[in-house]
Computed example of a mutant assay.
Amino acid sequence: MRLNDPLVTSFAFEGKEYAIDLSFDNVLDVFDYLNDKTLRDYEKAEICLALLLGDQSFDKAITIDLWNHVYESFIHIESKQPIEYDRKGNPMPVKEDENKNFIDLDKDAEYIFASFQQAYGMNLYREQRKLHWHEFQSLLNGLPSDTIMQRIIQIRMWKPSKGESTEYKQSMRDLQKIYALDDEEPEEVD
């Protein structure tokens, strides 16, 4: 995202111009279809393109390529950690948790809603069809630390350390169980 670029409302692909609806709620619908295990990949591509580009027929030969372009260019959320190097210039190993997701747009929906309301005075239901996906992502990433969503992320990221009381550690483990994604069990480390 660049602040001097306009929000994407259209794009060109193989010489043809397409209007695209990247409102955040529309993109969340796309994610729902992408996670639908009953659909084949080609069906997902067709449905997602119809959601984003409107009901129009696409040449079957370009459907997958068009979908891949749309996904990679406008929707994909990249959560790469910067590469750190040792003194000799060799890349340092990446810890397992550094690429772990600490937020789920579906499971955390009520916390995201409450956090946007608290931080920005923004009712996400009223912003449907208005708030662009890139705006939504930026606001989500910039939530202040005093919001419920940021607190939950801190709980999910917590690792026990020396000097913390047994009661505190147990309290944090209990909170991690409550807010766990994918029924993950927190580590048992003292």
Rank of each mutant, 00 (worst) to 15 (best):
F31N: 07
D32P: 00
D32L: 13
D32R: 15
Y33K: 10
Y33F: 15
Y33R: 11
L34R: 10
L34M: 14
N35D: 15
N35Y: 12
N35P: 01
N35G: 12
N35E: 13
D36G: 04
T38R: 14
T38Q: 14
L39Q: 06
L39A: 00
L39W: 00
D41C: 04
D41K: 12
D41G: 08
D41Q: 12
Y42P: 00
Y42K: 15
E43N: 12
E43K: 12
K44M: 06
A45I: 01
E46P: 00
I47R: 10
I47L: 14
C48H: 02
C48S: 07
L49G: 01
L49V: 04
A50R: 13
A50F: 08
L51K: 08
L51G: 03
L51I: 07
L51H: 05
L52R: 00
L53N: 00
L53Q: 01
G54F: 00
D55V: 14
Q56C: 09
Q56K: 15
Q56T: 13
Q56F: 07
S57P: 07
S57L: 11
D59S: 08
D59K: 04
K60Q: 11
K60G: 12
K60S: 14
A61K: 11
A61S: 12
I62S: 08
T63W: 04
I64Y: 07
W67D: 02
W67V: 01
N68G: 07
N68M: 09
H69Q: 09
H69G: 06
H69V: 01
V70G: 01
V70Y: 02
V70C: 02
Y71G: 02
E72W: 09
E72K: 13
E72R: 11
S73Y: 00
F74S: 01
F74V: 02
F74W: 06
I75P: 05
I75S: 05
I75C: 06
I75W: 07
I75A: 06
H76T: 13
H76Y: 12
H76V: 12
H76R: 15
I77M: 08
I77C: 06
I77A: 05
E78G: 15
